[in-house]
C-alpha cells in the first residue's frame, strides 16, 4: 500500500518579494512539514524577517506562490487570511507587545480577537495564566510591557504567540540583543513549546548555537528538563538548516551538512558556535 503524500504545512514556490524595486526575497522555494523545525540563518538584511512576514501573509509576493496548510495565500484577501493566521503563532523581532495593554491583556488578545479561535470568555484568564506560567512569567499579569526587562518582554511575546496552541510557530530573532543566559532560557522555552505542542517551528536567528540547541535537545516532559536528543534519546522531529544571503536561499540541509560546508559565508555562522 502506497504511503499517502505528505502535505506541507508551509510551502514557498519560487517566491520573489520586492519593495520599491529592491528585491528582498529572490526565487525562494522550500517546504516545511508537520513537526519539523527549520533554523533560518543569515546576516542582517538577508531577507529572514521578510520570509516570515510573507509566510504570515503580512507581505505579498511579487511572483511565486505561498501555501500555508495547503491553501495559497499569495493573493488571498486580508479578511480570509485571518482564519489562516489563527493557526500561526509569531514572535516579532521587537516583541511587538501592545504598549497600551497589560501583559494579561496582551496574551489574551489572540484568544479574544482571532475570528477562528472563539475561546469562551470564562476560559480566557485560566489559559492566559497557564501560558504565562509556562514561560515563567506568572507574576506579571497586571504589569505593562514598559515595566518588564527585554528578556521578560520576549517571553511575554512568546506566550502571546503560543497561547492559542498554533500548529505552525515562527520566531523572528528571539535571542537578538539578549545576554547569553537569557538567550539560552528563551531557546529552552522554544524547545519546550515545540516538543509539548509538536508544532512545526521556524526559527530565524543569526546565532548558530540557537539552531544547534534546537536540533540537539529535546524537552523531557516527565522530568521537566532539557536533555540531549542525539546519542541515545531518539529525536522525534527533524531539524533543517536554511541559510539566506541577499534575499536568496543558498543552503538547505541538516546539521551535519551545514557543519561540513566549505562555503565561507555559511562557515562564518557555523564557526560562531559555542
Amino acid at each position: 500500500m502506497a504511503e499517502p503524500a505528505r502535505i506541507a504545512v508551509l510551502r514557498f514556490e519560487n517566491v520573489t518579494v520586492s519593495f520599491d524595486g529592491d528585491v528582498a526575497l529572490r526565487d525562494i522555494s522550500f517546504a516545511a512539514y508537520e513537526g519539523e523545525s527549520r533554523i533560518i540563518l543569515g546576516a542582517a538584511g538577508s531577507g529572514k524577517t521578510v520570509l516570515l512576514k510573507t509566510a504570515m501573509g503580512l507581505t505579498k509576493p511579487e511572483s511565486g506562490k505561498v501555501f500555508v496548510f495547503g491553501q495559497d495565500i499569495s493573493a488571498m484577501p486580508e479578511k480570509r487570511l485571518f482564519d489562516i493566521r489563527g493557526k500561526i503563532g509569531m514572535l516579532f523581532q521587537e516583541s511587538a507587545l501592545f504598549d497600551s495593554l497589560n501583559i494579561a491583556e496582551n496574551v489574551a488578545y489572540p484568544l479574544l480577537n482571532q475570528p477562528s479561535i472563539r475561546c469562551p470568555k470564562a476560559e480566557v484568564l485560566p489559559r492566559v495564566k497557564r501560558t504565562l506560567e509556562f514561560v515563567e512569567l506568572g507574576g506579571t499579569l497586571e504589569k505593562f510591557p514598559s515595566e518588564l526587562s527585554g528578556g521578560m518582554r520576549r517571553r511575554a511575546a512568546i506566550a502571546r504567540a503560543v497561547v492559542t496552541e498554533p500548529p505552525l510557530q515562527m520566531y523572528d530573532s528571539p535571542t537578538a540583543g539578549l545576554d547569553p543566559i537569557t538567550a539560552h532560557t528563551i531557546i529552552a522555552l522554544l524547545i519546550k513549546e515545540r516538543d509539548v505542542s509538536q508544532a512545526t517551528t521556524l526559527l530565524v536567528t543569526h546565532r548558530f548555537q540557537d539552531g544547534n540547541l534546537m536540533a540537539n535537545f529535546r524537552y523531557n516532559s516527565e522530568q521537566g528538563v532539557l536533555e540531549p536528543a542525539r546519542n541515545g534519546a531518539k529525536q522525534k522531529s527533524s531539524t533543517t538548516f536554511m541559510v539566506m544571503k541577499e534575499g536568496r536561499l543558498i543552503f538547505e540541509n541538516d546539521q551535519d551538512s551545514i557543519e561540513a560546508s566549505k562555503d565561507p559565508y555559511i562557515g562564518k555562522f557555523v564557526k560562531q558556535r559555542v
Binding site: L58, F82, A96, L97, S116
Partner: peptide, 18 residues
Amino acid sequence: GSMKVTEQIDAMRALGTD
C-alpha cells in the same frame, strides 16, 4: 506611527485584527 515602527500594526494583523 510608533505602533508601525515597533511592528505592533503587523502584530495586530497577525493576531486577527484589521
